[in-house]
């Protein structure tokens, strides 16, 4: 398997808080890497560092042979990195179709694509995420599940190679959560994307991920196949407190 993303000894602090402390890991092409850890462990911060919202204090990040440590976010997107947000951030005043159109047009430099063409292509992504009937609804009027679908459509429309999914299941009811998981698995198949899947619920990643990285207080405390992680005393301790270890 080819190495896609490589994170080397990355650190980031906010004031006195070490949000990410000397973390290294890599993602291989085609895998689903689970990123796990209790609330506040630094999972979202790590994604923000890789997608360019924040710049690392130290360490470096490589993506497909490019050093992206200090690259501006939109260039990282064009290289093939995309993401969804833990708390959905749709474009409130755009219609669902229009917000996907933006990704289609700007996610990558396309050849011979007019606004109308982008509209047709965007429709495809909306359809894939089950939002075709909502294409003309303003994003702010969608419900939480639909917003998450839209975020996925928007992320896929940039034609990413690597996609960060930040806690898709948070706030969804079990039926919706199951649908969301199914959707992600199909996305992997259809679009051949590599996924970094953030979740603080262990059970989901046990099934979906091929490998899991665990963060705790900004440090990587474990990495390995899901089963191994589930039995790791350090991980159990970080989740349940020391008395259960």
């Amino acid at each position: 398997m080819k190495e896609m993303l490589k994170v080397n000894n990355v650190s980031k602090h906010f004031g006195g808080l070490m949000a990410i402390d000397d973390v290294s890991f890599s993602i291989n092409e085609g895998e689903t890497l689970g990123l796990m850890g209790p609330n506040g462990a630094g999972k979202t911060t790590l994604v923000n560092l890789i997608t360019g919202k924040y710049i690392t204090d130290s360490g470096s990040i490589q993506f497909l042979g490019n050093d992206i440590t200090r690259m501006v976010p939109y260039k990282r997107c064009k290289l093939g990195i995309s993401r969804t947000y833990q708390i959905p951030r749709p474009f409130p005043e755009l219609t669902a179709l229009m917000s996907v159109v933006v990704s289609v047009l700007y996610g990558k430099d396309r050849v011979n694509q007019s606004l109308d063409d982008a509209g047709y292509e965007a429709t495809h992504y909306l359809e894939f995420c089950g939002l075709f009937s909502k294409r003309n609804v303003l994003c702010k009027d969608l419900n939480l599940y639909e917003m998450r679908g839209l975020e996925l459509a928007r992320a896929l429309a940039t034609t990413p190679k690597l996609i960060f999914v930040d806690e898709v299941m948070a706030g969804l009811n079990p039926a919706e959560a199951a649908k969301a998981v199914g959707l992600l698995e199909r996305a992997k198949e259809h679009f051949g994307v590599t996924i970094l899947w953030i979740e603080h619920v262990m059970a989901v990643l046990m099934k979906a991920a091929t490998r899991v990285v665990v963060l705790h207080y900004g440090k990587k405390i474990a990495e390995g196949p899901p089963q191994e992680i589930a039995d790791n005393p350090l991980v159990i301790e970080s989740y349940l407190g020391s008395s259960h270890a």
């Binding site: 919202k53 976010p73 939109y74 993401r83 700007y106 996610g107 990558k108 928007r154």
Partner: peptide
């Protein structure tokens, strides 16, 4: 609507 998200979707 959202500068940060626009940038994340590839808009300069």
């Amino acid at each position: 609507d959202d500068e940060e998200v626009a940038a994340a979707m590839g808009v300069n």
